[in-house]
């Protein structure tokens, strides 16, 4: 676990978000917040990831892809629900093609970042806490 204290590599999957959570995650990479200088980054492959960031209420069409990505993340791993939709308390969780949150499809997330969408600072704080825990 010592290595994880020094970095946190995240893979992101959009599972039906309205794109506001994506915009806030993108803001983490801007020069203002610059998550990379804390040792946190978004990686291109789930195989390189320590954590999976999921946004959206998990649409049925995205469910198989999401499961495959999660299976590809090596253990130990962290599942992080970003935003109300992924956390199961968003406005679209009862829509017919929505599974109503990441816990319904994968497992209970290790971290839940509430907000519609959550502020980028809040996402950053949670990721840093997770990295240092």
């Amino acid at each position: 676990m010592i290595q994880r204290k020094k970095s946190l590599q995240c893979r992101h999957v959009d599972a039906g978000s309205c794109n506001a959570c994506e915009q806030e995650l993108t803001a983490l990479l801007s020069k203002e917040l610059d998550i990379q200088h804390y040792g946190i980054d978004i990686v291109a492959s789930p195989r390189h990831a320590d954590a999976l960031l999921v946004t959206g209420p998990v649409t049925d069409t995205m469910q198989p892809a999401l499961k495959k990505v999660w299976e590809a993340v090596p253990k130990p791993r962290q599942l992080i629900a970003v935003g109300d939709c992924a956390a199961g308390c968003g406005v679209f969780q009862k829509a017919y093609a929505s599974h109503g949150g990441v816990d319904k499809v994968l497992e209970k997330p290790d971290q839940t970042i509430l907000g519609c969408p959550p502020d980028p600072e809040k996402i950053l704080d949670t990721l840093r806490e997770l990295m240092n825990s």
Binding site: G16, G56, T59, T61, M62, F92, A95, A97
Partner: peptide, 11 residues
């Protein structure tokens, strides 16, 4: 597209 289809109109 429509990977993110939730069923908003029906909802």
């Amino acid at each position: 597209l429509f990977q993110n289809h939730r069923g908003v109109e029906k909802a």
